[in-house]
Every structure is written in structure tokens, then in C-alpha cells.
Nucleic acid binder design. Structure first.
Length: 420
RNA sequence: GUGGGUGUAGCUCAGUUGGCUAGAGCACCAGAUUGUGGCUCUGGGGGCCGUGGGUUCGAGUCCCAUCAUCCACCCCA
């Protein structure tokens, strides 16, 4: 039995949790300003949901899922992402029969069996949004804008937005056939990975980083050159909307997302400083997904954002601004015979909503002062022989060192006036 | 799944060509005259030297394996 969290997982200890609270709060507030409501789906789902919803040729499904059998021999899988679950919930609860678009957000842990490295964990956390029931490119722009606004609110400036369109099944099929024809003669120049991509998902050969592959495919057309009239219009409307709203982006012909269900808009936001895993968020349109999962023919769009990566990017920022005094007052008991009395006072303070604590380890008076200081107390209440006899308390302000005596009956008011 | 780096106290690290009871700083605890914090000084607790083998009179130091961790590939958040 070793005390060690499993590989690729980690604890967020109490001293660090304020960072998480801060980004979670910012994220939720922003999503709600944009009109998105939280949805919580199960941490595990039927394995089949991910196989169909994510695509069984993807790396995620083919080699990264935590899949297990339950006691009734059902095959279940810890969610590797949350879009498939949202689609399932959308269908299961017949949301399409209500007001559309349905605008949802989620926040929670995801699981992928990957080799850990900077910004990549086996249990990691994503924030994401999904909007079902509109194909309006303004909605694509809204989603991108939401993602960027969160980054801005958190104080992150140095991000890059990459944008592309992967077309619809019709124009992509035309392009795919052309591309296969182009690549065919150069097959022997491709790396082993690209040879596999050539068979399964030839578009992905385009963003291979192996130099020999890049040489082999140099000059080949991109999907952009094959977009049909509708897809091209969708893409230019999106770009116009972004331009109108001063959102900078880079058109990236090589941005081809790994998940099978994407149509039209694809985007990624990178923060290069955080390492090789620099994609802090990414997403796109998935107009065929709801139908593919057995629902009505309803379009959708969404993105996901990695919270650990967000934290990495935020690490350079000043921590202090998020920290607060942990305690309003510390109750220092200078004489052991008043221990019982101190517990009663503590109870009153806490009932009055004052953040208060005391020593439980028999510290001396001096040590209690040190302890109060380390706990970040604004003030200390001194309780000893003198105070008990005169029915008062001594109140010390830890910042100003000022000390006053207050009648026992007025303790709560005095604390609020003197310290808070 | 592949490659490289690293594993010594809670944390950051020293530890000379293998050789006495394994060290420092920070952190923690206790003192520095009687009921008072941050600075300073003094003292103290705490180490299967990642784990398991091997070489040797002798291994923290060398060799092998294994695990973990970090970084990169891959993929992605």
C-alpha cells in the first residue's frame, strides 16, 4: 500500500484550491452572461455512446478510454469528453421539442489513458459549452467570443485563435477523393502514421509534422479550396462577424480536428508559453452528430477548454490577489481554565457569521499569537484572568497592532466595527 | 505506444576518484523571565538516500531491472 495518487492524477490541496475556485467562478459567470445554463451528466456512460459519438477510429476511442464491466456485465466507460453525453441527454430528454437553441455548459473531470506530460493528465478537467438547434454562423462567433472573454477576464493576453472550415459531408467527400488521388503516387514517401491516416482519415496527413511527409504533400490543395457554396458562405459570415467584433484570428488550412463529427467551423485557441500541449481550448460545429446518435436532425456547435492548461497559463500571474484573510478573528485563551468558556464564545461568533477559530493543541499564549498570525487572522480576541474578572474582552487588530477592551456583551458588534 | 532527463528530510537541493553516527536552506515545534504575532538568535523533531537485485571488505555514490516523475514524440483539453 503506497500513498500515491495513480499515474496522471493529482490532488488539489487546500493551499491551492483558491486558484480553482477563481477560474471556476469566472467561467460560470461568463457562461451565464452569454445565456448558457449548466448541465451535469454522469461521469461514466455506456461505452457504445463514445464509440458512436466520438468515432471509433479516433485515438480517444481506440486507445485512450477507461472502459470497465460493471457487476451486471455492462460495458461502461469513464467519459473522455462531454459532448457525447450532452448529445445523449439532448436526445433522451427530447430537448428538441422545446425552445431552441439549447445553450448548455459543463465543468468537470474527464478521463483519458494517455502518457502524462506538461498540460496532459489522465484525469483532467474541462469546461465546455454546447449549443443545439441553430446553424447560424453568428452562434459560432458567440461561442468563440465566450471562450476568448474567459481568457481575457482571467488576465490572459497572449493567445492565438486558429480557424478553419472542414466543410460538410458532401464537399468533404469530394475533397477526400481528390486528396487520395493526389497522395496515392507519393504513398511510399509517407511515414508509417500517415500511411494509416491515408487509409482512415486522409485529411489528417496534411498536418503531419514529419518533414518528408510535408515535402511529399507540398502544393496539394486544402479543404478550403473545395468548400461548397453553402459551406463557403457559412465560413465567410463567421469571419465577417468576428471581424465586426474585433476578434483576431488566423485562417489555418492545416487545422483538421481529430474527432469525426465535426462539420464546417473548426477552431483552436493556443497559448504557446505553456509547452507542447498548448491548445487551451478547441471546438467546432457538429451538425451531423445528434442524428448520428439516433436523434432528430439538429445542428450543434461547442467547444471544450482544459482547466489544467488554463492554470498553467495563469501560473505567472500574481497569486496574492486571489487570497483573502482566512479568519476574521482568532480566540486566544491565555489561561487553560477558560477553555470551556472559549468554546461557547466561538460558537456565538460563528453563529454571527464571523470566521473564527481557536487553538486545540495546548499552545502557550505566545504560540497562539504566532498561530493566529499564520492562519491569517485579522484580529485576536484575548481571553484570560483579567478579562474574565472584568467581564470584558481584549481585541487586537493584527495589522495595526491596535488593542482595545470591549464589554463582553458588545463583542460581536465591536469585532465588526474594529476588524471587518 | 516511443525517446531522453531525474529520483537523498514536508519543500529546494549539497553529498568530491565507492570509505566513520547522511548535510544545508526554507518549513515545522519549543525557548529567549512572569498574558501578545511578523524580524533576529538558540535548541529540537524529522531521512526504507524511489523499490528490488547485483558487484565489493564496504554502495547515497558503480551495474541491471522495475516503478514514479519531468520533458518531448504521438494525440489532444
Amino acid at each position: 500500500m503506497q500513498a500515491k495518487a495513480p499515474r496522471g492524477t493529482f490532488d488539489v490541496m487546500p493551499g491551492e484550491i483558491f486558484k480553482w475556485h477563481h477560474i471556476e467562478k469566472t467561467i460560470k459567470e461568463t457562461a451565464e452572461i452569454f445565456g448558457y445554463s449548466e448541465i451535469r451528466t454522469p461521469i461514466f456512460e455506456h461505452t457504445e455512446l463514445f464509440e458512436r459519438g466520438v468515432g471509433d477510429t479516433t485515438d480517444i476511442v481506440s486507445k485512450e478510454m477507461y472502459t470497465f464491466k460493471d457487476r451486471s456485465n455492462r460495458s461502461l466507460t469513464l467519459r473522455p469528453e462531454n459532448t457525447a453525453s450532452c448529445v445523449r441527454a439532448f436526445i433522451e430528454h427530447s430537448v428538441a421539442g422545446g425552445i431552441l437553441p439549447a445553450k448548455w455548459y459543463y465543468l468537470g473531470p474527464m478521463f483519458r489513458y494517455d502518457r502524462p506530460q506538461a498540460g496532459r493528465y489522465r484525469q483532467f478537467h474541462q469546461f465546455g459549452v454546447e449549443a443545439f438547434g441553430s446553424n447560424n454562423p453568428q452562434l459560432d462567433a458567440e461561442i468563440i467570443s465566450l471562450l476568448l472573454q474567459i481568457l481575457t477576464k482571467l488576465g490572459l493576453q497572449d493567445y492565438e485563435l486558429h480557424l478553419n472550415s472542414v466543410g460538410c459531408p458532401q464537399c468533404r467527400e469530394v475533397y477526400r477523393k481528390q486528396l487520395v488521388g493526389y497522395i496515392g503516387p507519393f504513398k511510399d514517401q509517407l511515414c508509417a502514421d500517415c500511411l494509416a491516416r491515408y487509409e482512415k482519415n486522409p485529411l489528417r496527413v496534411l498536418d503531419c509534422k514529419v518533414p518528408s511527409c510535408q515535402e511529399a504533400i507540398a502544393g496539394f490543395p486544402y479543404i478550403y479550396d473545395y468548400l461548397c457554396a453553402d459551406c463557403l458562405e457559412h465560413y465567410s459570415k463567421l469571419r465577417n462577424t468576428l471581424d465586426d467584433n474585433q476578434i483576431d484570428y488566423v485562417h489555418d488550412n492545416q487545422l483538421v480536428r481529430g474527432l469525426d463529427y465535426y462539420t464546417n467551423t473548426a477552431f483552436e485557441v493556443h497559448i504557446p508559453q505553456i509547452g507542447a500541449q498548448s491548445a487551451i481550448g478547441g471546438g467546432g460545429r457538429y451538425n451531423g452528430l445528434v442524428k448520428a446518435c439516433g436523434g432528430p436532425n439538429i445542428p450543434g456547435i461547442g467547444f471544450a477548454m482544459g482547466l489544467e492548461r488554463l492554470l498553467l497559463a495563469l501560473e505567472s500571474l500574481d497569486d496574492q490577489q486571489y487570497k483573502d484573510h482566512k479568519l476574521d478573528v482568532f480566540l486566544a485563551v491565555m489561561d487553560g481554565k477558560y477553555e470551556a468558556q472559549s468554546v461557547k464564545i466561538l460558537t456565538q461568533l460563528r453563529q454571527a457569521g464571523i470566521k473564527a477559530d481557536k487553538d486545540y493543541n495546548g499552545r502557550s499564549g505566545k504560540a497562539q499569537m504566532k498561530y493566529a498570525d499564520k492562519l491569517g487572522a485579522r484580529g485576536v480576541i484575548l481571553l484570560g484572568e483579567d478579562e474574565m474578572r472584568r467581564n470584558i474582552y481584549t481585541l487586537r487588530n493584527m495589522d495595526s497592532k491596535e488593542q482595545i477592551e470591549v464589554p463582553a456583551d458588545h463583542l460581536i458588534d465591536a469585532i465588526k466595527k474594529f476588524l471587518i
